[in-house]
Nucleic acid binder design. Structure first.
Lengths: 147, 147
DNA sequence: CCTGAAAATAGAACCGC
DNA sequence: GCGGTTCTATTTTCAGG
């Protein structure tokens, strides 16, 4: 992981479908050299994959909410989250509420029915999102010799 | 937005760097047809972009945390979030805590100094993430005539 | 939405540092 | 190990139907 890798990742963060040749042009390096660096970043697991960023509202997902859960059975809850398409993220927490999940639903009604099911796993507190000033922002990259 | 668009998006969700020709092969459609569908999805804003998914830990970001904030000046806080590389997401909420932000830092120490700055904008509650059973999961896609 | 040709791109083999 | 050159296969783009 050096400055060149950092530049490559920065360009891929801006547009993950940029061509390898185009990256090469922008950082003054030949296409095969860039290609092999990208392959190595993938092999080392620094690049985990490439995702398309969709507009949730244009796909009918109007409601975003965070649900805090106080559960005693994390395993069951994790399984439930994996099976539920509404769940976009799930994180285990330290503290009184030991779980937070991020959900997206079509309407308040579907959110409500989801919450009903969710409450089987523990006490819940729901916070609905009014607006998202920043979402899916890029990770800052530091250059370290180790990685 | 029809079933074909849904299939294309599903394939792009799995790997946003898949070639257009490969998508065509998988859904039995010629490459130019797929290419134009993708272009239209981009033009309509359904596809907002393509992101590389990085491993935060391998980039030195060991700590993930959610911070709930009770602020009276959303504008300043939003500006602060935009300027802070630690902030990955920021959402305005309904309820007592009117803001939630997701941050990633190198260490507890950097998280702590970030929290110190953050507290200037209002009362905060921090929840550190122990593990993430699911992160950056794909949005489910519904086929509607309108979009 | 398909076909077909030209341009651009990706991947592999090989060379030199 | 790392990058450059060259060659080949694949992909993209753009014409026309």
């Amino acid at each position: 992981m050096d400055q060149i890798d950092a530049k490559i990742i920065t360009l891929l963060q801006q547009n993950a479908r940029i061509s390898i040749s185009q990256i090469g042009r922008l950082i003054n390096m030949t296409q095969p050299a860039v290609g092999e660096r990208v392959r190595k970043l993938e092999d080392r697991g620094i690049i985990k994959g490439y995702q398309v960023v969709l507009d949730p509202e244009k796909l009918g997902k109007q409601i975003m909410a965070y649900i805090l859960i106080q559960t005693e059975n994390c395993g069951n809850l994790v399984e439930f989250c994996n099976q539920s398409p509404e769940v976009i993220e799930a994180h285990q927490l330290s503290g009184q509420f030991n779980f937070i999940i991020k959900v997206m639903t079509e309407s308040m009604q579907t959110l409500n029915s989801f919450l009903h099911t969710c409450s089987k796993y523990g006490f819940t507190t729901t916070m609905t999102v009014l607006s998202s000033p920043t979402d899916t922002k890029a990770l800052p990259i530091e250059i370290t010799e180790s990685n």
